[in-house]
Design a protein around this nucleic acid. Sequence first.
DNA 1: ATCCCTTTGTGAACCGATGCACAAAGTCGG
DNA 2: CCGACTTTGTGCATCGGTTCACAAAGGGAT
Lengths: 224, 224
Amino acid sequence: MSPSQPRDRGIPEATVARLPLYLRALHGMAERGVATVSSEDLAVAAGVNSAKLRKDLSHLGSYGTRGVGYDVEYLVYQISRELGLTQDWAVAIVGVGNLGRALANYGGFVSRGFRVAALVDADPEVVGDTIAGLNVEHIDELEAVIKRRGVSIVVLATPAEAAQEVCDRVIAVGVTSILNFAPVVLSVPDSVDVRKVDLSIELQILAFHEQRKAGGPLMAVDSQ
Amino acid sequence: MSPSQPRDRGIPEATVARLPLYLRALHGMAERGVATVSSEDLAVAAGVNSAKLRKDLSHLGSYGTRGVGYDVEYLVYQISRELGLTQDWAVAIVGVGNLGRALANYGGFVSRGFRVAALVDADPEVVGDTIAGLNVEHIDELEAVIKRRGVSIVVLATPAEAAQEVCDRVIAVGVTSILNFAPVVLSVPDSVDVRKVDLSIELQILAFHEQRKAGGPLMAVDSQ
DNA sequence: ATCCCTTTGTGAACCGATGCACAAAGTCGG
DNA sequence: CCGACTTTGTGCATCGGTTCACAAAGGGAT
Ligand SMILES: NC(=O)c1ccc[n+]([C@@H]2O[C@H](COP(=O)([O-])OP(=O)(O)OC[C@H]3O[C@@H](n4cnc5c(N)ncnc54)[C@H](O)[C@@H]3O)[C@@H](O)[C@H]2O)c1
Ligand SMILES: NC(=O)c1ccc[n+]([C@@H]2O[C@H](COP(=O)([O-])OP(=O)(O)OC[C@H]3O[C@@H](n4cnc5c(N)ncnc54)[C@H](O)[C@@H]3O)[C@@H](O)[C@H]2O)c1
């Protein structure tokens, strides 16, 4: 084990949120056989400012070479390690309806070290079905399944009414990372990370800007 | 004469992103018959700091009563109007696969003034199917469908490879609001708003924090 | 009408994030 | 080995957003 680098401490949240973006761009470059990339080119590929990209990367360490750029393979490895993608994460999807099914069938997870390890639902019609090669288990088995499969990340795709209860139960068995699709504010201890995806909110934000564009006759168009 | 309010100018982006959250909380309260709410209570329901909530609302105008709070119905109306939800928005979903289907079948859109007005796909197997009461149309008809149905917001749920091309085409016929699910950085003119939803990124952010917790000061993996 | 209590709306300090601009560091051709 | 050139890494000014804390505003009781 290498000694703990002071680098690892305190990576800004905004930087963490962009690392996956860089990683995706880098994977694309690696596939196209690009060996080295400048901050300028990588920034364009990731859709960000190049100074921001350099500052972001500087938080992980000095992995670039002045006058040359960054070694693609090496940077992929460093970012992956920083994000914790060098290990395998077991994910459980609770609520196997329209959305839960789409997620279960999605190949994009596995490609980044995430493995859908369990599907859980309350509906007897659904329990026992096989979806994406996985057996759907009963919500009564929730705690047992999470422990047995070593699940550390739970995706909530139940109706809004059920989300808080499921959330409480998974936290009680030690889960501290939750991705929530239900349109509710989950109440959790500080030690638990919740990220939410809310489609409806995204559309409303778009509508706001759209209205503004259409509304004002000669309004300054400022966006993004 | 000119009904343009100076209030409408320059609502911070961060505020706009939270208005839908307040709206959701307010709808819940209205349903439960609550007539008036304090910034403190509404803040709790929306999961934010109360000072932040008050500042956010102050950007729309002075709609509260000191010593009392905010009238729920009135505030719902004001926020809805500000977000442009008093009008009906026609949404097209392009790419009717796993995810597109889930979105098409989702009832949560309609409830906020968003109407799925068109489904478009390239696969002959899918084109012609009826999903959620809508006929899936061929991608060749994309421009015609958008114009005919008055679509102003496009949801992209195609594979990553097809996203940029579809994006270019809808922009060419005047669409300026796009919600993108494909894991690519779309290149668009400044006048176009793109919001992206990327599941994989959310999971990676969770993994980062999860790794940190596990690898931290004490190996507190001990659940229960 | 007056006083007390509640709650808003906001000035101001604070904090993290962004982006410019450049010195330092390295490459490469000659 | 040197000098021209490229590109990183970062100091610094700036900006947008958050939070505190409180004066001002209103309601209700007496
Ligand atoms: N479908 C979408 O596009 C979409 C978009 C945005 C948000 N959402 C949200 O995602 C969630 C799921 O949406 P959906 O369209 O898949 O709904 P859905 O009704 O199709 O599926 C919900 C599933 O959860 C199961 N369920 C109910 N109670 C449960 C419990 N206590 N424990 C475990 N499972 C339970 C149901 O049996 C059902 O299979 C909802 O909260 C919805 O608001 C969905
Ligand atoms: N399913 C998920 O949970 C999930 C999660 C995150 C991201 N995504 C992303 O969302 C997108 C869709 O995912 P999916 O699982 O539904 O994929 P999918 O393959 O099931 O569906 C894609 C659909 O798009 C259609 N299509 C292909 N080319 C097209 C074109 N040029 N024009 C119109 N339609 C076209 C296909 O016929 C297919 O029906 C992908 O980019 C995926 O990476 C999906």
